[in-house]
Simulated assay, not measured.
Amino acid sequence: MEGTLLVGFVTSNPNKLFTKVLNKGDVFSNAVAFAGLSSQNPGLITIANAVFGSNPPINPDVLAKAFQLDKNVVDYLQKQF
């Protein structure tokens, strides 16, 4: 692979954004995720808080492309958080 790639993730509570530009041969992060549900109604996962309310904010152009939204809509949503 050639070139660079901007990668990242957002933690929950607080919604913190971590990013890094990767070059050929780089590694960003090893990750393991566990999910456990104790009932038929496990609760609510609020992706909007993490995505539109991260600190620092995710680039609005990236969010517009990812969610196929107009950039003005993304700006509006980010201002809500």
Rank of each mutant, 00 (worst) to 15 (best):
M1E: 13
M1K: 14
E2T: 14
E2I: 13
T4P: 01
T4G: 01
T4V: 08
T4I: 10
L5E: 11
L5A: 15
L6Q: 14
V7M: 00
G8M: 06
F9R: 01
V10S: 07
V10L: 04
T11C: 12
T11D: 13
T11P: 05
S12L: 02
S12M: 04
S12H: 09
S12T: 05
N13I: 11
N13A: 11
N13W: 06
P14R: 04
P14C: 09
L17Y: 10
F18N: 06
F18Q: 04
K20S: 13
V21H: 04
V21T: 15
V21G: 02
L22D: 08
L22F: 08
L22K: 07
L22N: 09
N23L: 14
N23D: 13
N23E: 15
K24S: 08
K24M: 06
G25Y: 00
G25V: 02
G25A: 02
D26Q: 02
D26A: 00
V27R: 06
V27T: 09
F28H: 03
S29K: 10
N30R: 05
N30W: 03
N30E: 11
A31F: 02
A31P: 00
A31Y: 00
A31V: 03
V32H: 04
V32R: 10
V32A: 12
V32K: 12
A33M: 04
F34D: 08
A35C: 06
A35Y: 07
G36P: 00
G36H: 10
G36I: 09
L37H: 11
S38L: 08
S38T: 10
S39C: 10
Q40Y: 10
Q40P: 06
N41V: 11
N41K: 15
N41A: 14
P42Q: 05
G43E: 03
L44E: 14
L44G: 11
L44F: 14
I45L: 15
T46M: 14
I47M: 14
I47L: 14
N49E: 13
N49C: 05
N49Y: 04
A50Y: 09
A50Q: 14
A50L: 13
V51E: 01
V51D: 01
V51Y: 02
F52K: 00
F52S: 00
G53T: 01
G53D: 02
S54A: 15
N55A: 07
N55C: 03
N55Y: 06
P56R: 07
P57D: 06
P57V: 02
P57N: 06
P57T: 03
I58T: 03
I58Y: 02
N59F: 04
P60L: 06
P60N: 07
P60W: 00
V62C: 11
V62A: 13
L63D: 07
L63V: 08
L63M: 13
A64N: 12
A66L: 15
A66W: 12
F67H: 09
F67Y: 15
F67C: 09
F67P: 08
F67D: 10
F67S: 11
L69M: 15
L69K: 08
L69Q: 11
D70L: 09
K71C: 01
N72P: 01
N72V: 10
N72A: 15
N72I: 07
V73K: 09
V74M: 10
V74K: 04
D75E: 06
D75I: 05
L77Q: 03
L77S: 03
Q78F: 06
Q78G: 05
K79C: 03
K79W: 03
Q80G: 04
